[in-house]
Design a binder for these strands. Structure first.
Length: 465
RNA sequence: GGUGGGUUGGCCGAGUGGUUAGGCAGCGGCCUGCAAAGCCGUCCACACGGGUUCGACUCCCGUACCCACCUCCA
């Protein structure tokens, strides 16, 4: 059994067989940094993070490229609106994106190229397309891809030319479906938003950057290309057409993640119905719970976001986290190291990353482990504890990973620990003389301070809410 | 209008032609001074109408509704 993935191009589940044994080249369309990221974007980041982790676990040496589109019409508009340089807008949002990826434990890609750093690779590719007769420049200095020159156009999204409406881009193009490769600089646009090219000053169209950057870092042919279903057409279709027309094999598999909806419609920058990770944090949801929430749904399914569902996910996540902590406290942290992935977990992951089924295995294992702890079966408990930890770690959700710790002041934590211990000693004395009113008062006082105390067979344990 | 996906129990969410998904919430019990956590048990299901089949939630046809894309968008 090995990894099988749903491939949009063939509309089927296919065995993953890399072009180069032992290596996997993956390109993910990252974000256009016109605004701060929302959790729909983060869903994409988490989904592919899970894929990359699984590929690595499966023994592949993975080269993972996730681009940043830092030049685009809307970024220029934002700059104009805010009276700031367009590149200041782009970089600010890129930093926010990096911050949110990090918060959700999304590992950095191997390379994270910016569009503006690869203009040369793009103009080279465009020149090649013009030379081959698949693109043409107009008087204005724009360059268009000729859709009619490429017979396979539509092979990815399975659209027939007669079904297609005209591209939104206007200009002196020969066919309404032709899309822009190079946009001539227009009067009034920032001078520093233009680069020199054989067709005059201008900037690249959206689609060409991904073709150029994928080629630059992954070669003319690579394994997996990913992105959201919303950019399958026209973006990916255009990428595919222009790359193939330029003589490149391009991606072998196309993977698309489902949308995250809010109140029934897609969360998107243009609709304004967005929700950030920080906003969820203010509502009391932990970053780990958000990651768990996004992971507990298969990546291709649409997710209708709701706080209720997220709250349920947080409870479920805490159950797993509690179990791992409980095992570590009872048997020592070293007993939770080196666990094995359950065969059912591996089978679920290999089956087009069926994370909900994988998570079900986690819960079943945790239940067995909790029962073993209750029964005093340390060996079985350790096996379950280490297994759950290993499987959670595989999903980027190891509760003992320092990543999830609150970055609080270590000295302050030490001081609080000493004070709470003092209070708990007094409570223990009260309980010993069966003065439960006094004991409960101490516990209530601590609760008011945000400290939850629970009694375990090995004594009280406290946590900060 | 075109293309694709979906409709599972109070909620989230997998899956299979005949066997308990899993979680959250609820209910009963065990444990606990109480609580929390945990364990055991339990209620609640496959949009609707036909068809195929010994048997369909699971395959086929139709209907309804929802979502995405067809225009910038993960």
């Amino acid at each position: 059994m090995s990894l099988r993935l749903y491939d949009t191009g063939t509309r089927s589940i296919r065995d993953f067989q890399p072009r180069k044994p032992g290596h996997a080249g993956v390109y993910l369309c990252g974000l256009t940094v016109q605004g701060p990221p929302h959790i729909g974007h983060l869903r994409s980041g988490v989904s592919y993070d899970v894929l990359i982790r699984w590929l690595r676990r499966s023994g592949y040496d993975v080269t993972y490229v996730r681009n940043v589109t830092d030049i685009d019409d809307k970024i220029l508009v934002r700059g104009e609106e805010q009276g700031r340089p367009w590149w200041a807008i782009a970089y600010e949002n890129e930093r926010k994106l990096a911050r949110d990826y990090a918060a959700l434990n999304v590992a950095p890609p191997t390379y994270e190229p910016r569009a503006t750093g690869h203009i040369t690779q793009m103009t080279d590719l465009i020149a090649s397309l013009v030379e081959r007769g698949h693109a043409y420049a107009t008087e204005s200095g724009d360059v268009w891809f000729s859709v009619s020159s490429w017979a396979d156009y539509g092979e990815l999204s399975h659209r027939r030319p007669e079904d297609m409406l005209s591209s939104a881009e206007t200009g002196a193009k020969r066919d309404s479906r032709d899309f822009g490769l190079w946009k001539a600089h227009k009067p009034g646009e920032p001078e520093d938003a233009a680069w020199t090219s054989p067709w005059g000053p201008g900037r690249p169209g959206w689609h060409i950057e991904c073709s150029a950057m994928a080629r630059r870092y992954l070669g003319d042919a690579f394994d997996i290309h990913g992105g959201g279903t919303d950019i399958m057409f026209p973006h990916h279709e255009n990428e595919l057409a222009q790359s193939r027309a330029a003589g490149l094999d391009f991606a072998k598999y196309w993977v698309h993640n489902g949308m995250l909806n809010l109140s029934g419609t897609k969360m998107s920058k243009s609709l304004g119905n967005t929700l950030s990770v920080a906003a969820l944090g203010e509502k009391g949801f932990s970053a780990a719970a958000v990651r768990y929430y996004l992971t507990s749904v298969q990546y291709r399914s649409a997710v209708d976001f709701s706080e209720e569902a997220l709250a349920e996910a947080q409870s479920a996540w805490e159950r797993l986290s509690n179990f791992v902590h409980r095992t570590a406290e009872a048997l020592g942290t070293e007993a939770t190291i080196g666990g094995a992935l359950a065969p059912e977990f591996t089978a679920a992951m290999d089956d087009d990353l069926n994370t909900p089924a994988a998570v079900a295995v986690l819960h079943e294992t945790a239940r067995e482990g909790n029962a073993a702890l209750d029964a005093g079966d340390d060996a079985a408990a350790a096996r379950a504890g280490a297994g759950v930890r290993a499987m959670l770690d595989q999903l980027g959700l190891d509760p003992l990973d320092p990543h999830w710790d609150d970055p609080g002041d270590a000295k302050l934590t030490g001081a609080v620990d000493a004070l709470v211990k003092l209070a708990l000693e007094q409570r223990a004395e009260a309980r010993a003389r069966k003065d439960y009113a006094a004991a409960d008062r101490i516990r209530d006082d601590l609760a008011h301070a945000g400290i939850t105390v629970k009694d375990t067979p090995r004594g009280p344990v406290w946590t900060v809410d």
